[in-house]
Structure formats: C-alpha cells, structure tokens
Design a protein around this nucleic acid. Structure first.
Length: 433
DNA sequence: TCTGGGGTCCTAGGACCC
DNA sequence: TCTGGGGTCCTAGGACCC
C-alpha cells in the first residue's frame, strides 16, 4: 500500500500570524489601564485561566489553572481577573483576519487568534519589512500586537513563531538549515505542533527529547510509531510541506456546551439549559446555512466531586435534516429524556450536531415520513426563524426567546467580571466624554 | 465554594457484500 | 484433509489543536 501524503513543493513558504495573549490583548484595546499589569481571562463560570498576560505568566500562573489555585496571588500582585467576553474577541478576530486578507488572499484561519498566510507565490522583496508592515497594520487598525513566524512548512512556521516570542521579537524567519537546526534543538518535544500529552512520554521513552531528535527520524519509522500524522509531522520538520492551506469548508459539527453556575438536580432545570443550547445551535446553523440530521445530547456530573461521574447521552434523528429552532428544541428535549437519570447533581449539559450538510442539499426523506403540509414545508418556519434572528440581531441576544429556555433559569453561568461588548452592542459602545 | 468550550483528523474493528 | 479473500462503509474512541 502506498499513497502520497504530501505535495512536494520546495517553494512553499508560510507565515503564521498569532495574536499575542489574544483575549488579554482584546481587553486591553478598550481598557488601557490593564497595560503592564498581570491580567487573567477566565473560562465560563469564572472557572480557570484561559488567557494570561506576560506579567501573569511571570507569576507562574499556568494555562488552565483553576481560579482557586491562584486566588491567593490576586491581591498581593494586583492581578486583574476578567470573565471571558467571546462576543468581543470574535469580533476583533474577524477584523484582524480581514486585514490579513489584504496582504494575500490565501489566508487559512486556523483559530480565533491564528492564521497561516501562504506566501509562496507572493513577490516579497524583503521578508523583514513585509512582516513589520503586517505587524504595524494590525496594531494600528485593531490594537492587537501579533507575532509572525515564517518558514517552508506550517510546523516549522509554528516553531519560528514560538522562537520569535521567546526572543521578544515581532517576527522570525527560519530559512537556512543552520537557523532551522538551532531552533529545533532548542524546542522541547512537547512544544511541537502535533505532539500532545500521550505522545510525549511515548517518544521520550524512545530517546526523543527535542524537535531536532524527531526531525532526524525516518518518516516511515514515524508512521509505524505514530501513524499517518506522525509521518507527516517528521516530513514537515524536515522542510517538506504536507499541510497546504485549506479552502474554507463547511463545518462538519457544531456543539453547544455550558457548565451550570450551580449544580442542578431537576430535569426541568436542565431541560431549560438544553433548550437554550438548542436555540444557540439553531442560530449558528442558520447563519452558516447548514442543517443537521441528528442531535446528541448529554448531561454530566462533575469529574471532581469525589463520587463516580455520570455522563448520560441521548440521540435523536430527524426525519428531515433541519435548522428550525422549534424542531431542534423538541428533538433535544426528547434526547435529554434518554440521557437524564434522576438522583445526580449535574454540572454541565450540551448538545452536539454531527454530519452537518448544506441547506438545500437534496436528502432522501425517511420512508415513513408522510408527505404532509406542515409549517416547515410551507416555508412559514423559515420566515419565523428569520424574523426572530433579525430581531435578536438588532436588539440583542434573547430579545425574543423560547419559553422552554425558562423565564428565570437556574442554569445561568457566573460571569462576575465581564467587560462590555464594545464593538457588537449599541448600548455597550465606548463613550468619549 | 471553585476545574472551559469548541473543533478536526485518524484508526481499529465490526457489519456487510460478493 | 480442506472452512476465502477482498472490498466498502460506518462508528466509537483516541489524539491532537486553540
């Protein structure tokens, strides 16, 4: 068996652009008093640290550290803790990506704060000036400092980016073999893109401790030990590009998951949360012009409570793939009845839509679904959803909501320190006095 | 008291087919 | 005596990412 795993193109060149401490930087754009101070952005429910300023990293606060493990440092070091504000981060991210698209149309948005620019075919006279120009433009228009790593493969660009951060530079280009070897030798195995918690100990046992150690292995050896992705990874470290920029593709799955502000025991309380999640899901599906044929629903207890965790799962398949909120809620609540078991203290619940397909794609109806005249087939449902989406967009989320999500729900997340959504809400826009 | 949320890709194994 | 072999498709679970 043999097949190609990479497009061998020695001319490849990628720039990885990465927003520095992105969520913290977003907060600082509108609140300069946070500059030069240790700042932490917390996960939903103010649970743990999901972004840290350099000052906070210097205090030894780890990524993902629960708030209670560093709460004793907050007062003495005047750490500013903020609840996460994804509406703000998402909007600034979109603006940043638009700016990057002015430099080249070939932008692969990898995450909320990262993008790969394929600059192979770009005529650039000097990469240092080019990088500086990107940095200056993003800083000027968005206010976010970024770091740029340039190399012949995405994996090497990641390492170049990391090297730049370590050296406190705005950009690093790795092109000569000497530069690459030196960077690989000073990169710990666990910091390599694609090497995670499970592979690190496995490879260390085999005598591989740095990115360099891995880069001198035979790709076929890596294939045996780590599978296809291992083979690609070794080739990428050797400068052979295996991950080209992707066209923007439709999402394959969407999930909406939240942990509750308090533990919940009653079916009805959890049903309200699931109903709200289904509403969010419907909004996302419609915005992306997708429909889902199935839904899975889960409700689970805490992993840290001491007793054996319970994770209930329920699944529902729809006769016809849908993005109608009412149908999604009805289906999700049906699935929740399979998942829910009384007697537990639930900590979170979520829904997951898999195998998404584009709206309007022909799909065989169930043999048993009768051709009946419903509000969905007559288009009334679509109009209703459009009207609700429009009102909520204009006047704020949940201006109109489904009663099944609860008038005064108990599942609400805690967000004690959320900043205003400066760029997406009229009533939260910054005011100059 | 207090431990996030949302994704993708790959693989192994089972079911099924001829 | 001797009990195939090759293929596809689907799914669950694992591993990774930010």
């Amino acid at each position: 068996m043999s097949f190609t795993v990479c497009a061998i193109n020695t001319q490849s060149l990628f720039a990885l652009i990465d927003g520095n401490n992105f969520f913290v930087s977003c907060e600082r754009v509108f609140n300069p008093s946070l500059n030069n101070k240790p700042v932490i952005v917390l996960s939903s429910n103010d649970g743990c640290a999901i972004a840290r300023s350099n000052e906070a990293k210097a205090l030894g606060i780890a990524m993902g550290a629960p708030l209670h493990t560093f709460s004793h440092l907050i007062k003495p070091h005047d750490i500013k803790t903020l609840s996460c504000n994804f509406e703000l981060y998402g909007d600034l991210s979109n603006r940043m990506m638009h700016i990057l698209q002015n430099f080249t149309p070939d932008v692969d948005i990898y995450s909320i704060d990262e993008a790969f620019l394929d600059i192979s075919r770009l005529h650039v006279s000097g990469y240092s000036l080019f990088s500086q120009s990107i940095y200056d433009t993003v800083l000027k228009h968005i206010g976010i400092p970024i770091t740029i790593g340039i190399a012949t493969t995405k994996t090497l660009a990641k390492i170049a980016n990391r090297t730049a951060k370590k050296q406190q530079k705005t950009h690093v280009m790795m092109r000569t073999q000497d530069e690459i070897t030196h960077a690989l030798q000073s990169t710990d195995l666990s910091s390599v893109w694609g090497i995670g918690r499970a592979l690190t100990p496995k490879l260390k046992k085999l005598g591989i401790y740095t990115a360099y150690d891995l880069s001198i292995k035979d790709p076929m050896w890596a294939r045996k030990v780590m599978g296809l992705s291992g083979e690609r990874l070794v080739r990428e470290l050797q400068g052979i590009s295996c991950y080209e920029n992707k066209e923007e593709v439709d999402k394959k799955s969407i999930q909406v998951t939240r942990s509750f502000g308090v533990r919940l025991q009653e079916f009805n309380d959890i049903a309200e949360a699931i109903s709200a999640h289904a509403t969010r899901l419907g909004e996302q599906l419609r915005r992306q012009k997708l429909v889902t044929p199935t839904l899975s629903v889960f409700c689970r207890t805490s992993l840290y409570s001491g007793s054996t965790p319970y994770n209930g799962i329920g699944i529902i398949a729809f006769d016809t793939p849908t993005n109608d909120t009412a149908t999604l809620i009805k289906g999700a609540l049906h699935a929740l009845r399979q998942a829910f078991q009384s007697g537990h203290l639930y900590q979170s619940a979520g829904i997951h839509a898999l195998d998404l397909i584009a709206e309007g794609t022909f799909k065989q109806k169930s043999l048993f679904s009768l051709p009946k005249k419903t509000s969905e087939t007559t288009g009334q449902t679509k109009k209703l959803n459009q009207a609700i989406d429009m009102i909520n967009q204009r006047h704020g989320k949940n201006t109109l909501f489904w009663a099944s999500s609860g008038i005064n729900p108990r599942y609400h997340v805690r967000q004690s320190h959320r900043s205003p959504r400066y760029t997406t809400r009229w009533d939260e826009i910054p005011v100059v006095r």
